[in-house]
Design a protein around this nucleic acid. Structure first.
Lengths: 198, 198
DNA sequence: CCAGATAATTGAGCAGTGTTCAATATATTA
DNA sequence: TAATATATTGAACACTGCTCAATTATCTGG
């Protein structure tokens, strides 16, 4: 039996999330298993369930961590000194992170909470953070627009890029003969911004 | 024991696919179960596995049927006598089918074949059929454009609408405060067509 | 330093899953 | 009718998420 003071509760939490992330990135959501995560950190299933009430809760924590890393990636890209076209940087950053971490990224979208249960506030905040990065650049590109208008456009453009990204990772674009999805997504984004400028 | 001549092999196949579709629409991909489908058609699991080699194969068949029904829905909308704006009709048809059959529609995208295995030809053909419906309207909207160019734009616009539709069904738009996703998608499509017209 | 309270850890057990396959029942053919 | 072929079955296997009584470690008050 692991000695109960080997790790504090919060150390255990991060161990489980870290190892869970590794496992999820390896095998994907469909083959993700609580027992495997427990085994890999040297504890039993029971301990895992003592820290997380359910697999759903653990997966939310893992996906939350993935969202954090995604936001970090986007910020790092935006902070590069030689980045001129910041909107292209965001679009490329979206694809980069998704293609570099396909299974983790897909899990963000394919893991659903129980019917009718809303995502917790801390999770919504992480999504809103990424949205905020985009909204700021859209607002900068639309000097005259209201805050609400640039937010609305940002939401729609994230959805646009997301659609292209999903079709890339899900191989739908392969079936349809698309070979340059990032360029296509960027073209759509630019057209929308030009149109919004009037 | 069911008498072996109660149903022919192909009758059995369609029974399984139909009942499977019903079950999938009810409970969603995550709770879909071969045993339940078998029970509901009055046969044992073994018989189901005699017709379909695996759950994956059954799910492909079910998703294929969903794609057929989706194409039918779009064609029916386009054939209405009073349909003026055919592109708006397609965008609305995309959302209509998805929101009317959320779990079946989501299963099309969330069911993945084993790693590295390509979708069978008959399945690719069904996807291409829907794509063709869109491509035809895009081509009609771009009189001067080459076949390749309008196909490429059609692919990108389907991805655009898809992104908005996914964010709607996955409640991502709820988190972000978006309330009129269909209008947003349609606006993006229109801007792209205007831009392509030159 | 020790007894008692508290809390962490365990893993067998439950009900479920996809899948297999020997046994059985039915139909076809000679 | 006998022999062959095929459809159907369901117990069995290895897995899953999850629970909870039992065990063990730690902390606290005297």
């Amino acid at each position: 039996m692991a000695r109960r003071s080997d790790h504090t509760r919060s150390e255990l939490r991060t161990m489980i999330v870290e190892e869970g992330r590794r496992q999820l990135a390896d095998v994907g959501l469909a083959r993700f298993s609580a027992r495997d995560v427990a085994k890999r950190i040297g504890y039993s299933v029971g301990t895992l369930y003592n820290v997380f009430a359910s697999l759903d809760e653990l997966l939310m924590a893992i996906n939350g961590r993935t969202l954090e890393l995604w936001a970090e990636h986007l910020r790092a890209r935006l902070h590069r000194p030689d980045e001129g076209d910041r909107i292209a940087t965001l679009v490329r950053g979206y694809f980069e992170f998704a293609t570099a971490n396909p299974k983790s990224w897909i899990a963000i979208y394919e893991h659903h909470m129980a019917e009718g249960v809303a995502a917790p506030d801390w999770y919504v905040a992480l999504v809103a953070d990424i949205m905020g990065l985009v909204a700021a650049e859209i607002a900068a590109a639309l000097p005259g627009a209201s805050r609400a208008a640039s937010l609305a456009l940002a939401r729609s453009l994230v959805a646009t890029v997301h659609g292209h990204c999903v079709f890339t990772l899900y191989q739908t674009f392969d079936m349809l003969g698309e070979t340059a999805p990032v360029d296509a997504a960027l073209a759509r984004v630019r057209e929308a911004i030009v149109a919004a400028r009037g």
